[in-house]
Amino acid sequence: MRIIVNHATCQGHARCWAQAPDIFKLDDEGYILPGDINVAEGDELLASRGAQACPERALEIDRTAAAPESVFIQSRV
């Protein structure tokens, strides 16, 4: 799963961050960092909740994208 971040639409409500601060990172002004977010498999529920919390509809959920290999596996490889 991938979260498509429409950065220009973010207005700093920070509702995504309130749901999942480790997935949705904010800059010093409180707006989401630019760039789409690849969601690890175990984080999908939290990430989709965060995306659905956006009052501006700045976050789109792309369920077709494969989850990145987890950090755990990557660190072993």
Binding site: L26, D28, G30
Partner: peptide, 11 residues
Amino acid sequence: RSLLNPLFSPK
């Protein structure tokens, strides 16, 4: 807004 945002940011 950029000037004032950090004063009222979530952090």
